[in-house]
Design a protein around this nucleic acid. Structure first.
Lengths: 190, 190
DNA sequence: CCCCCCATGTAACATGTTACATGATTGA
DNA sequence: TCAATCATGTAACATGTTACATGGGGGG
């Protein structure tokens, strides 16, 4: 095995779900089809090759269940190398580029964080988010203010939608941070 | 020319920007690099082939400017067929799938709408958005309510972030609808 | 003279999409 | 027995990524 890391977020989504509990390719497709979790493809032509890559990289291991049938069902579970790769991925420092170009990936990282890192990493992640939002929102406001008033308002409205989304995200970050506060009397796990 | 329509939103993003004003490939790359408009690739390996496809489909036309240099600079402008394709694309009925899987594309459609359709189409678009949001948000709340309380809260928090984003979008839709109200005494253009 | 920006493009490669193929099991 | 669902996979194809190639013009 070549110890390579996944190159796309689909790989990490699969790895993370498998780490939460062992699943088959079909199980994973159902997750993508039926839950709001990740808007990933769910097409067999994406899932099965991705699983094969993860297994070849040694990040997951498949065991055949139900030997009785011709078409064996493979149940994958995460390997220690897989958990390590996942932990490294979620712990990466945030960049503004992540925000602008890969927002979904960022939330996927957050969602998968719970099972592989401790709360300090989560807090760091959220604090970095806050920092970036505090830098980025005013930038967007500036661009909005400089947009010409003439012509159809669609462009300005689309941008203001973006700004309002980021503001909603910012409120959420503060709420989430409160839930992970290190020195709260009322800690998590109640 | 084969009169084909673009297959990806990058194609429509390029077409829309070119329709707003004639531009070169390099100009378009700069738009994607420097503005919050679309988080599209800006890589030459994506832009130039996409422009070639649009030109082959007869949706844009390139004219060489600055014959003096060896490397001619091509300025593209939209053709009537291009405008028609753009109009059809932005006017498509919205589906819930657009929301869940192609939210950015949806906002791109809105942003490009201004120059190719009249306000009635915009209103229809926004009203459809509202309808879908009103169906989808309670669905997400339901899923959140059914999530197990045990274990790390990351998954629940990620979902609640999604819900809050959709709520922010909903507020924005109502605000935008007010700006496009057909029977307001105070119409647009003031 | 060298480096950076303008400006266009290509080649190799990985990924994802769509459509199809295969076969088992379960309920009407 | 027929249809639907479980379950895995492949092949052809389009797109996008990364890295490279090419060349002119301007400023220090």
């Amino acid at each position: 095995m070549k110890k390579e890391k996944p190159t796309t977020s689909l790989g990490y989504a699969l790895l993370g779900l498998i780490h939460l509990q062992p699943r088959s390719g079909y199980d994973l497709r159902k997750v993508f089809e039926t839950t709001p979790m990740g808007h990933y493809s769910s097409s067999p032509g994406a899932i099965y090759p991705a699983l094969k890559r993860l297994e070849e990289a040694g990040l997951i291991r498949g065991k055949v269940a139900g030997r009785k049938s011709m078409r064996p069902k493979r149940i994958y579970s995460s390997s220690p190398e897989g958990v390590k790769a996942l932990r490294e991925w979620v712990s990466q420092p945030l960049t503004m580029d992540d925000f602008v170009h890969r927002d979904d990936e960022l939330m996927l990282r957050f969602a998968l964080m719970g099972s592989v890192v401790d709360d300090a990493v989560t807090r760091q992640f959220l604090e970095q988010m806050l920092e970036i939002l505090d830098a980025y929102i005013p930038e967007l406001r500036q661009i909005l203010a400089e947009m010409p008033e003439a012509g159809p308002p669609h462009g300005r409205l689309a941008l203001s939608s973006g700004i309002e989304m980021y503001m909603a995200r910012r409120r959420w970050v503060r709420k989430a941070l409160a839930e992970f506060a290190p020195d709260e009397t009322k800690r998590r796990k109640e």
